Simulated assay, not measured.
Amino acid sequence: MSNTTDTLRLALLNRFLKGEAKIPQMPEAAVRIRKLLDNPMTSTEQLVRVINGNPPLAAYLMQFSSSPLMRGSRPCGSLRDLLDRLGTRQLADLVLGFSLQHLFESTDPLLLQAFRLRWRHARERAAHCAVLAQRAGVSMDDAMLAGLLQDIGSLPLLSELENWPEVPRDSATLEELCESLSGNLGALILTRWQLPPSIIECARLYGQWQREHDGVADMADLVLLASAMQAGHEPEEPLPVQKKLGLEQPLATLREELADELSMWKRLLA
């Protein structure tokens, strides 16, 4: 990183740490659903009414009605059927994942373009996470959300850059800033949102491909492997996270093995 970019990075990070730059609130739709789910008096009928009041959200949720996320031998025929089978945490995670795309607004076309690219990458990472979760025997919905949120720190950074017209808008500069600051800012946002520590850790470790730690594999290992696969990395030796997860074949081979499942999850998450 050049001295100029390094100085800019530190200045931006300092604004967030001092509370001078805006940290986004959890999306309103996700907050509303979580409040309903936290209330033991909330009925399925109430949830159906609220979700049907947001047709794009209802359509998004119904896409998962016949996915591996659902338990049972038959697909869900209605939103009520779907909600009866989804766990409360699954529903909260899916609503939050859907709502994230509306967190960023900008009048700067280059910043908007950068956001759309990173959001597409986030969806692809979430698809990789879902497939790897099936292999690793961990919760698919937790893994998908962790994948979507791993780069959440880029959103407030791109929003803040609206106030910095002197910062070049070329893709290389924007990517360098996002890559270097996403982990710190992501952990800050998800801590404010009071999400589980395992999800916060996934964001904090953004881009740390060579992560090593004691103990068994955790969610951060899975998300880092998904991120490496999605980004097209081809390391000469298996990554430490691959060894933790018992998936030591070359990443190109792993992508090929998972291609059909990945295609399905990418369609669902689009």
Rank of each mutant, 00 (worst) to 15 (best):
residue 155 L to Y: 05
residue 193 W to M: 12
residue 151 D to G: 02
residue 144 M to H: 01
residue 152 I to G: 00
residue 180 S to G: 08
residue 128 H to N: 01
residue 168 P to E: 10
residue 143 A to Q: 09
residue 166 E to F: 13
residue 139 S to R: 14
residue 178 C to E: 12
residue 141 D to N: 09
residue 123 R to N: 01
residue 137 G to L: 11
residue 183 G to I: 11
residue 145 L to Q: 09
residue 132 L to Q: 05
residue 126 A to P: 00
residue 129 C to I: 10
residue 163 N to V: 04
residue 161 L to Y: 10
residue 125 R to I: 14
residue 130 A to E: 06
residue 145 L to K: 08
residue 185 L to K: 09
residue 164 W to I: 02
residue 143 A to N: 03
residue 173 T to D: 02
residue 183 G to R: 06
residue 190 L to A: 07
residue 185 L to E: 07
residue 137 G to Y: 12
residue 140 M to A: 01
residue 148 L to Q: 03
residue 165 P to F: 09
residue 171 S to I: 13
residue 135 R to M: 10
residue 142 D to R: 15
residue 183 G to E: 02
residue 156 P to M: 09
residue 158 L to C: 09
residue 185 L to T: 08
residue 135 R to P: 00
residue 154 S to D: 01
residue 160 E to Q: 13
residue 161 L to D: 07
residue 174 L to M: 06
residue 137 G to K: 14
residue 145 L to H: 03
residue 124 E to R: 13
residue 152 I to F: 05
residue 130 A to F: 04
residue 174 L to E: 08
residue 147 G to E: 07
residue 133 A to N: 10
residue 147 G to K: 12
residue 150 Q to T: 15
residue 172 A to P: 00
residue 172 A to S: 12
residue 195 L to Q: 12
residue 128 H to P: 00
residue 183 G to H: 06
residue 144 M to C: 02
residue 123 R to V: 07
residue 162 E to L: 15
residue 159 S to C: 04
residue 167 V to K: 05
residue 178 C to T: 13
residue 171 S to M: 08
residue 124 E to Q: 06
residue 142 D to K: 13
residue 186 G to M: 12
residue 180 S to D: 04
residue 191 T to H: 06
residue 188 L to Q: 09
residue 139 S to Y: 01
residue 145 L to D: 02
residue 187 A to P: 02
residue 167 V to N: 06
residue 138 V to S: 08
residue 180 S to R: 15
residue 122 A to D: 02
